[in-house]
Computed example of a mutant assay.
Amino acid sequence: MNVPNLLTLFRFVLIPLYLFLFFSDLPNRMYWAFGVILLAGLTDVVDGYLARKHRQVTQLGIMLDPLADKLMMLSVFLSLLISERISIWAGVAIVLRDVGMIVGSAFFHLRGKRTVPANALGKLTTFLFYVALFLLMFELPFAQSFLWGVIALSFVTTLIYLFQFKMINQRLM
């Protein structure tokens, strides 16, 4: 187990910590909860950098890294849905896309297909989701509109990933 993969596993541990903080009665709980989200984002950047720099990119990491990201995002958006900071329709759109990507990635990985590593558009989409989370958690103006723009971009990104997935696995046949 290399350091980048350990950092990815650490992000899984941050999910219940985030949920505890978000739903707690602690003073400044939103700041603490958002801090956990930022820590998850930082470890995502660091593990990717270390994996590439030290040539430690593994199939396990390629599969676990986006899974950790998706589960964190799902947890955050479900907490926002439960606390009524986002609409049911925004929650459904996000959950359908992310669960579909998780299940699809796991299904094809288990069938011996190669998964597609994150690309620049996927990273931009993730960054914009973080901005949307900030706007939503602190109930800032235009948060809902911004979120819908990011949701639309995320579906475009998913279509691109599907195309890349098809191309990478056709070459292997």
Rank of each mutant, 00 (worst) to 15 (best):
R97F: 13
F127S: 12
Y31N: 08
S105E: 05
K53C: 06
L64Y: 04
I88H: 14
A152G: 02
I15N: 03
T8R: 03
W32G: 00
S83V: 01
I168M: 14
F23V: 00
D65H: 12
S105Y: 01
F12R: 04
F23P: 00
F34Q: 09
L81W: 15
L6H: 05
T115E: 11
R11E: 01
V57E: 14
Q59N: 15
Y130H: 08
L153H: 00
L110A: 07
A68V: 03
W89S: 12
L74Y: 07
M72V: 07
L135I: 10
D44P: 08
F77M: 13
I82W: 12
L147D: 09
L50E: 08
Y31M: 09
G48I: 01
D25A: 00
L147Y: 09
L64C: 03
L133N: 05
H109I: 02
G35D: 01
G91S: 10
Q144Y: 04
G91L: 06
F20L: 12
L153S: 00
K113Q: 13
G61K: 06
F163Y: 14
N119E: 14
Y130E: 04
V3L: 12
M73S: 12
I160S: 04
F34V: 06
Y130F: 13
R52Q: 10
S75V: 09
H109C: 03
A33Y: 01
A68K: 09
A106F: 09
T125A: 15
I168Y: 06
Q56A: 05
A120R: 08
R11M: 08
L39T: 12
M173T: 15
F129R: 10
V45S: 05
T157K: 12
F10A: 10
L7C: 07
I168P: 02
N119M: 05
L60D: 03
F165V: 02
L14Y: 09
F20H: 11
V13L: 15
A93D: 15
V45M: 10
R52A: 07
F155L: 12
Y49A: 06
F146K: 02
Y49F: 14
T157I: 01
V99Q: 11
P66A: 11
G91T: 02
M73D: 09
L153A: 02
A90F: 05
S154W: 12
K166H: 15
L135P: 05
R85L: 13
P117G: 11
L133F: 07
P16A: 08
N5I: 03
